[in-house]
Design a protein around this nucleic acid. Structure first.
Length: 543
RNA sequence: GCGCCCGUAGCUCAACUGGAUAGAGCAACUGCCUUCUAAGCAGUAGGUUACAGGUUCGAGCCCUGUCGGGCGUACCA
């Protein structure tokens, strides 16, 4: 319908004003239902170049418009010069029928068909369990990946980690100290160690497996390696509970072993963009508008994290992805321009790297902001949260707000809210429909074709129109990387259904009407189920 | 100091990236269950979109400045 209108409008404009450079015709759904189904503002945008009042242009345009009366019921000029289009009811029924035929594929698009996408997210180093602080990253990344899949892309999910840095050494030592303590040695945990109880658990498993074999070798790699293994197991179990399955875990160390790091250094050097000073190797970021140059290799010979970051992105693009998407919090925003600059220098198309930056989550506990620290072990893990509220509520909570705004996560409220949490509003709509279906199946019999035009009630019309918007919102959420748009939409659909539930009945109605209504509800259930699937949230048949 | 993000109802947040009368959920108040799930529906109340200018047919959204908050600004990750 959208394309059809665009087409006839452009055509009319061409006939009216042959000399004019055609503007892009924008159609949008008016916020207010009385304003029709779709509206365009072309008349207003043309007011200036044509030096005519917008309403006059709109009138000329409407008069020359060639349209099929079977598709459009009415065209009006309103306000400062909007042209409002009203669809013929027939169009609505045909479209609904089409949606019903698609069933669980309804809403799938082909916008990114044939494209290979990679989404890199979570990427927490294995120093401790995932906390609610990681939750937003994990859920956003996975859901954006699902959205890309839904619009046709082939998507890989990747977890990038580093097990070689200072923090990991501290981790290994923390385990070693706990190990010694458990075996009766008087050793103090050094300042800055990991204090969490899980460290003691890891030490305990080491004792079970090896007794006191390593009591005099606190520097033995087994401490770090065991910790890493146990913690990674824990992390992937947590992700699994949240319906997140990674395709690959990429170790930063591979970039050193496969030569990517050296390769990047060499190629940057060939472009004359690096130099040595004070024993360190610098990247001339000033030539890209930054105030200072950036250190790539410290005077100690150790690279800064920026160098592997660059190499990692180059490596990802070399692996053949059309687009690589990073999900990260506002604190990492600074690295992004450097990586992009470097990739540009290395000859990559910078548009192949895309970033979703989300604002921080403020944890509120006992009514006060709560600063978490993995090291100091004052944190709430995602597992603990899911024990309380389940994974549906957890996912929903992180998705319901725009990534660009700060998210306040009140632990107490999330735990309390349980049943009255907004996610239940959506699930309830689905369960309620399924319940009706079960009842109807037992008591009513339908034969013959469904007669959709029997759906005439105001709330039925509204519902039908809402259902037909689903594909639009999937695309919108995917392309903007803003899953909350889909949530807002599903909320509207659920509200429309709940209203329908009160306005219209099925059991006790005349059979043909009941049959048509069941068809409509099938559509609603489909949209709710498909939408919740995209969000990684269960659509229960009963609650 | 400089850079990025944010500031919308008492609270938490929307507003499809410049459209028509700024909307939901909590919290408050009022109604609606002998009929398909009241985890619901209908209604009342709540706003100078932080402030001051500017751009244009039109601004919560764009530009400038001010105030307030967050994050950066490391030879830390």
């Amino acid at each position: 319908m959208n394309d059809y209108l665009k087409h006839i409008i452009s055509e009319a404009l061409q006939r009216l004003y042959p000399d004019l450079e055609l503007p892009e015709v924008v159609l949008e759904k008016p916020r207010i239902a009385e304003h029709g189904d779709l509206a365009t503002n072309v008349a207003m945008t043309l007011a200036k170049p044509l030096r005519k009042p917008p309403r006059a242009i709109a009138e000329e345009l409407v008069n020359t418009l060639n349209y099929d009366a079977g598709q459009l019921e009415g065209i009006e000029i309103a306000g400062p010069g909007f042209i409002n289009f009203r669809f013929a009811p027939n169009w609505l029924y045909t479209a609904l029928k089409g949606a019903l035929e698609q069933g669980e594929t309804y809403g799938k698009g082909r916008q990114l068909a044939g494209k290979r996408y990679q989404v890199e997210f979570v990427s927490a180093n294995p120093t401790g369990p995932l906390t609610v602080g990681h939750g937003r990253n994990a859920v956003l990344g996975d859901t954006v990946a699902r959205l890309y899949e839904w619009v046709g892309a082939d998507v890989d999910r990747e977890y990038y980690f580093n097990n070689a840095g200072r923090q990991m050494r501290v981790l290994g030592n923390s385990v070693a100290v706990r190990y010694q303590q458990l075996l009766g040695r008087e050793v103090d945990l050094p300042e800055g160690s990991y204090e969490g109880e899980y460290i003691v658990d890891i030490a305990r498993t080491l004792i079970e497996e090896h007794k006191d074999a390593f009591i005099d070798q606190p520097d033995h790699l087994i401490f770090k390696e065991t910790a890493e293994r146990v913690i990674f197991d824990d992390i992937s179990r947590t992700l699994d509970r949240m319906n997140i399955r990674m395709n690959t875990y990429f170790n930063e160390n591979d970039l050193y072993e496969n030569g990517s790091i050296d390769d990047v250094l060499k190629r940057l050097d060939e472009k004359g963009l690096t130099y040595k000073e004070d024993g360190a190797l610098w990247f001339k970021t000033t030539s890209f508008g930054k105030e200072k140059d950036t250190v790539l290799v410290k005077s100690s010979g150790e690279p800064t994290y920026r160098l592997p970051d660059i190499a990692y992105h180059a490596h990802k693009l070399d692996r053949g992805y059309d687009v690589c998407v990073d999900i990260f919090g506002a604190d990492h925003i600074a690295t992004y321009p450097d990586v992009l600059s470097a990739l540009g220098v290395l000859g990559y198309d910078q548009n192949r790297v895309d970033v979703l930056v989300y604002q921080f989550v403020t944890i509120v506990m006992d009514g006060k902001p709560f600063k978490m620290s993995t090291r100091k072990a004052n944190f709430v893990t995602l597992d603990e949260l899911m024990d309380e509220v389940g994974s549906d509520v957890t996912r929903f909570f992180f998705l319901m707000r725009s990534p660009g705004t700060h998210l306040e996560f009140d632990i107490a409220q999330a735990k309390e809210s349980g049943e009255k949490n907004p996610v239940f509003y959506l699930q309830y709509a689905h369960a309620r429909i399924k319940s009706i279906m079960r009842k109807v199946e037992e008591t009513m019999q339908f034969d013959g074709e469904v007669d959709l035009p029997l759906l005439q009630h105001e709330t039925e019309i509204k519902l039908m129109k809402d259902l037909l918007d689903f594909p639009h919102w999937v695309i919108s959420a995917a392309m903007s990387k803003e899953p909350h748009r889909l949530i807002n939409y599903l909320n509207d659909v659920a509200a429309g259904f709940h209203k329908f539930y009160h306005d219209c009945r099925i059991m006790g109605e005349e059979a043909k009407l009941a049959q048509a209504r069941i068809a409509l509800l099938t559509g609603v259930a489909t949209v709710m189920a498909n939408g919740l699937t995209i969000l990684g949230i269960d659509a229960p048949d009963r609650m």
